[in-house]
Simulated assay, not measured.
Amino acid sequence: MKSKFIPQMDSVIKCIEDNDVFVVTSHVSPDGDNIGSTLGMHRFLEKIGKKVYHVLDDDIPSNLVFLSKEVEKITSTELNEENYVMLALDCGDEKRICTSDDVKRNASVRVCIDHHASNDASFCEINYIDSKASSTCELVYNIIRRYGDLKSEDYIDEVIASRLYTGLSTDTGNFQYSSTAPSSFEMAKVLLEHGAERDMIIQKLYQSNSPNYYRLLGDALNTLSIAEAPNGQLVASICVSIDMMKKHSIGYNDIDGITTYTRDIENVEVGIFLKEKRKGEIKISLRSKNDIDVSKIAMQFNGGGHVRAAGCTINDTIENAEKIIKERVLRAF
């Protein structure tokens, strides 16, 4: 393996070899890369004889539950270990790590494996951060391959392959997004050769939405609002309230797929999806096609992410949050 990140990988590997107990966790509002990278690492650590806990104080989206059937997810209050390493995967910000402050603080060592451009590598002692990687699953894949090279053994099995393929698929938009690189296809090739269940993964991720999801989507699309930037490009926004989710019995973590509808409109450069987590707390997802770095916009609201995909939170009504974020986006043109 040739990579300028080998020293970072080796620092993670040394930490793994030097310790016996690990907590693997990720960010709030889990997604495919979150769950895929966390559980891919979980399986790898178990294979090499480590004790591992999957700690996440949030619900796994229904379309990703298939990945976690063989792994017990516990909450922070259920963790009863005193000496452990915390592996924070796919987290660009300490505040987004989905555990209690006690779990973060009590770790003997904290390791960050991440690909967010907004990650300043300041909240963990050991870091492997590559903002150009397609996904955190790709970084976990690199670590496992590097470890295998060092031990002259292949550690990727069908379970690891399927978990990592899931995150690779979701974070590249099934190989549509600009984050997709030659290494993404090479990784997909290797994972498929190792038994990744591609057809099942695609069905679970993209072809298994409930009827109620589409009923909610219909209501959400009725909120579509489009504004024109000074250069003639468009900004689109869609809002989903708590009442809309309750009406259709849809969970907060099960509607992120609506985000793409804001961007996938002709002449729209930036799409904005707003969803109400609770009254006065609005989660905002930003997506761009070409020229606008939405991570810089998200960072203005203590959020972050990638150039083409980022997020933040605004504490206000959903109506006011839409006005605030749209005004800030239009300033970026």
Rank of each mutant, 00 (worst) to 15 (best):
S134D: 11
V159M: 11
S108T: 14
I250E: 11
I297K: 01
I226Y: 14
R198P: 07
S288D: 05
K246Q: 12
C137V: 08
R43M: 04
R328M: 11
E158Y: 09
K50Q: 10
S62M: 11
E153T: 14
I144Q: 02
K326I: 12
T262E: 03
H115T: 05
E269N: 07
L87G: 04
E276Y: 06
N290R: 12
R331S: 14
G232C: 09
K204L: 06
Y128I: 01
E81R: 02
N212P: 08
P30N: 08
G92A: 08
G40H: 01
M9F: 10
G303T: 05
M200V: 14
K283N: 10
I16S: 06
L139T: 01
D90L: 04
L205E: 03
T77G: 07
K2D: 12
S241E: 00
R43C: 10
D243M: 10
S108A: 13
H194R: 15
A161I: 06
D291M: 12
G195A: 07
Y213R: 09
S169G: 04
V24R: 04
R278A: 12
S11K: 11
K289C: 07
P30E: 08
K51F: 00
S118Q: 06
I201F: 05
Y147E: 03
D120F: 08
K4G: 09
E269T: 04
V109S: 09
E138W: 07
L234F: 13
T313Q: 05
K2P: 02
D219R: 11
V55H: 06
V28A: 09
E269A: 09
I113S: 04
L164P: 07
D130C: 09
D291Q: 15
T172L: 01
N302Y: 12
E228T: 15
M86P: 05
G311T: 08
T136P: 00
I202C: 04
H115F: 04
Q233L: 12
D31Y: 00
R328L: 05
V23I: 14
I6H: 09
G303P: 01
L191C: 05
I143Q: 07
I325M: 06
S183Y: 07
T260I: 13
Y206F: 15
F44H: 02
I242F: 02
S169V: 15
L45G: 01
T262Q: 02
F333Q: 08
N80S: 13
Y165A: 13
R198V: 10
K283H: 11
L56M: 14
L64C: 04
A133H: 00
T172E: 00
E46Q: 13
D149P: 00
I156H: 03
D114S: 01
V294S: 07
H248C: 07
I60S: 03
D264G: 10
H248A: 00
S183M: 10
L286E: 05
E70G: 02
S210N: 07
G304H: 01
L286T: 04
D316R: 11
V268Y: 00
N209I: 02
M245E: 03
G280M: 10
L67G: 05
Q176Y: 13
I16N: 02
P230T: 11
E78K: 15
V190A: 10
M9C: 06
S210Y: 02
V28E: 09
V111N: 07
M200F: 14
V55F: 06
N142F: 11
T223K: 02
